[in-house]
Simulated scan of single mutants.
Amino acid sequence: MANIRTARQEEADLLADIGIRSWELAMIPVAETGSMLENASQAFQNFTRSRWITISVVESGGVVAGWAAREQLDENITDFWIDPQYQGQGLGSALLAEVEDEIRKQGFEKVSLETHALNRDAVGFFEKHGYSVHWLTITYNPKLDRDVQTVGMSKQLVEPAGTGYAEF
C-alpha cells in the first residue's frame, strides 16, 4: 500500500539518489548519460537539499519509492521520479493522484508538466492518467550537443464553466 507524505529534510540525499536513477533510465533514448552524470547528480542534490519542502514522497512498505515536486507550489509538476525498481506497481499513479488533489484543493483548475518527447514511458504514463500534449518544442542542448524535443502536457482538473448555451 502506498503512503504519501511531505519529504523530510534528512531525506534529501536519498531523494537525489532516486532522482538520478530514474533520470538515467529516462535519458536512455536521448543520449549517453555518462558525461552528464556528475552534473545531474549535483543538480539533484542541490534541488532536494534546498527545495525538500516542495517535495511529496511515496512510500511502499515504509521505504521511499519515489517523489514529485512543485517548485513554486503552483499547478506545475516540476519533477516526478519513481525509483526504477518500484515502477509498474501503482505507486506513481497514487503519487500523481495525491499531487493533483493538492493542486485542486489550492484552487487551480489544471495541472501541467514538461518532459522530453523521447521519454515514451513518461509520456504514456501521463496520457494514461488523462494528460494531453499541448506543445512540442525543439531546443539545442549544449551538454548533449544536439537538439532535444520537449513536450508540455496538461490535464484539466476542474470542468470549465458552461458557455451559457444549451447543449442538445
Rank of each mutant, 00 (worst) to 15 (best):
His134Trp: 13
His116Tyr: 15
Val148Leu: 13
Glu114Thr: 11
Ser154Pro: 01
Phe168Cys: 04
Gly66His: 01
Trp23Pro: 06
Pro160Asp: 07
Trp67Ile: 03
Ile18Val: 12
Ala65Phe: 06
Gln87Tyr: 03
Val111Cys: 15
Arg70Ile: 04
His129Phe: 05
Asp17Thr: 05
Ala12Met: 00
Gln89Lys: 15
Val99Ser: 01
Ala117Ile: 11
Gly19Cys: 07
Thr6Glu: 06
Asp79Glu: 14
Gly66Ile: 03
Gln72Val: 08
Val57Tyr: 05
Ile53Lys: 10
Glu98Ile: 00
Phe125Arg: 02
Val64Glu: 01
Thr33Gln: 01
Gly19Arg: 02
Tyr131Phe: 14
Asp13Ile: 12
Ala161Asp: 06
Asp101Ala: 15
Ala16Pro: 05
Gly152Tyr: 07
Tyr140His: 13
Ala68Ile: 09
Gln85Ile: 14
Met27Phe: 13
Arg104Ile: 00
Ala2Arg: 08
Leu25Ala: 12
Asp79Ala: 11
Gln106Leu: 10
Trp23Thr: 02
Leu95Arg: 05
Ala166His: 12
Glu75Cys: 08
Tyr86Lys: 07
Ile138Arg: 15
Arg104Phe: 09
Phe44Met: 04
Asn141Ala: 13
Tyr140Ile: 09
Gln87Asp: 02
Val99Phe: 00
Leu95Gln: 06
Asp83Gln: 06
Pro84Arg: 06
Ala2Gln: 06
Ala65Asn: 04
Glu100Trp: 01
Leu15Asn: 03
Gly107Asn: 11
Gln42Val: 07
Gly162Gln: 07
Ser60Lys: 13
Thr150Val: 12
Gly92Glu: 04
Glu32Thr: 15
Gly34Trp: 09
Phe126Pro: 07
His129Arg: 15
Arg51Cys: 10
